[in-house]
Design a protein around this nucleic acid. Structure first.
Lengths: 246, 246
DNA sequence: CGTCATATTGATCGCGATCAAACTTTGTGG
DNA sequence: CCACAAAGTTTGATCGCGATCAATATGACG
């Protein structure tokens, strides 16, 4: 169940078998479930646990007074929802399930123990937080500077890359369980315009999307169109000098 | 010089005199200077040091292939530029001085020592990182859901609040050393449209802005207009249970 | 006092919003 | 397994915010 997390962290540095065991050890916690479109934790709640997504997609979103909503992050299997949130008194946003989601609710103490005993894992977790922050920045660039087509294209390439890095996508194919309304809430356009944007991507033979399954037909062209630069995901085993030897 | 940082962290929990001394102790490092509009560190560089802004404003920005640029964060006095970046192999963005800037370049080791010896400071630093992340999210909401007027209004209220929290603003007045082009790069609009937006804010008697000095004429109306909700800055001494007693 | 960055104004264009309706898929209870 | 509701997708017509292009101030500064 924690396979995705191990795969993800291994993008940073090779883990020892003890490291991996320590991560698998987190599964002693009772695994929780949330149905699609229900909140895991809501704005205003006191954050106590750290969440680790095991399967399914979740998202982080903020809701405005005028009823509009912005999705500010996706959580895929292997992603933590904020490693240190428990320091805050109340959530400034909501985390909701996109699909049915399985996740672990870990206590600060449990995570503290893991990071104390396994410094390499601690480093890898810090790296994954840095990557999350980098993704947030790239999303800011999308919303500030890219057109609707570019935003959608960029998001698709990013999600494909992230899913591939945890073994959940290959050959330009991936599950894509997001509704068009949700995609609109990520990319900051209206659902109507998002629909037209998807149609244009299909018309240009860049993607295929049906029954929640997405195929990238021409990854290179899509990357170029979206001005996608891989670097911000920091997937190049940047902590390799910390590799375990066993 | 580290007064701003101490003021900022005190928004989270009351520091002991030892805590404060430990922070002041960082100043043994030679203080560096950058001229306005020059980079402190550029995309592609290997991040080695952690930077702490002492005076002046800096910003984080990403530059696209098509020549456009998005400013994704402002660093005000007391702000760190990424506590843990040194883990990454190369910067995915650039940090530039907005005004002339004084800053400290701290080594990972030096910061590690501080956080080991002063757990309350460590917590406070973690809190400040969480706040930075929260600000990033709020900026995503701005770019995705707010109009140009709302974006500019929101940014002004945020900067005023942040400056006030480190003792650099009061009575709705603040230094505002940002050019209109830079403001445009933050808010994701063109300089021309930004200019018209500022004029509209002035016309509605919401702000006054001349010779790099900004006055908020009607904070309540500006807040309402921008749908500004204070909570995301987490300034309410959320770590008060960790307060020092001396 | 000329040069260069910054700010302002005017005219026109177009991407994406809005409004409205139909169509399709999914799911649920009888 | 069908009926019907609810959610999600698609299409069409029109509107408007902010982009673009172009020119003109207004400083700041050597």
């Amino acid at each position: 169940m924690t396979k995705a997390l191990i795969a993800k962290l291994s993008q940073f540095a090779r883990l020892s078998s003890e490291d991996r065991d320590a991560i698998v050890g987190l599964e002693t916690v009772h695994c929780k479930t949330a149905r699609a479109h229900t909140p895991l934790i809501s704005e205003g709640d006191k954050p106590i646990h750290v969440r680790l997504v095991l399967s399914g997609w979740a998202c982080r979103h903020k809701d405005l007074a005028n009823g509009r909503r912005q999705i500010v992050a996706f959580f895929l299997p292997g992603d933590f929802c904020d490693l240190n949130v428990y320091l805050l008194r109340s959530m400034d946003h909501t985390i909701s399930a996109v699909t049915d989601v399985k996740y672990l609710q870990l206590s600060a103490g449990m995570l503290g123990k893991l990071t104390e005993e396994r410094p390499r894992v601690a480093q890898a977790l810090m790296w994954s937080e840095l990557v999350s922050a980098s993704i947030q920045r790239e999303w800011l660039v999308s919303l500030g500077q890219r057109t609707a087509m570019e935003r959608v294209g960029h998001l698709i390439v990013e999600l494909y890359t992230r899913l591939k890095s945890v073994g959940l996508a290959a050959d330009c194919r991936m599950a894509f369980p997001v509704t068009q309304s949700e995609l609109a809430e990520v990319t900051g356009v209206t659902p109507v315009h998002l629909n037209r944007t998807l149609q244009e991507l299909r018309r240009q033979k860049l993607i295929e999307l049906e029954s929640r399954q997405l195929t990238i037909l021409d990854l290179d062209r899509l990357r170029d169109l979206a001005m996608f630069e891989l670097g911000y995901l920091h997937l190049d085993r940047e902590g390799r000098h910390l590799d375990a030897n066993d």
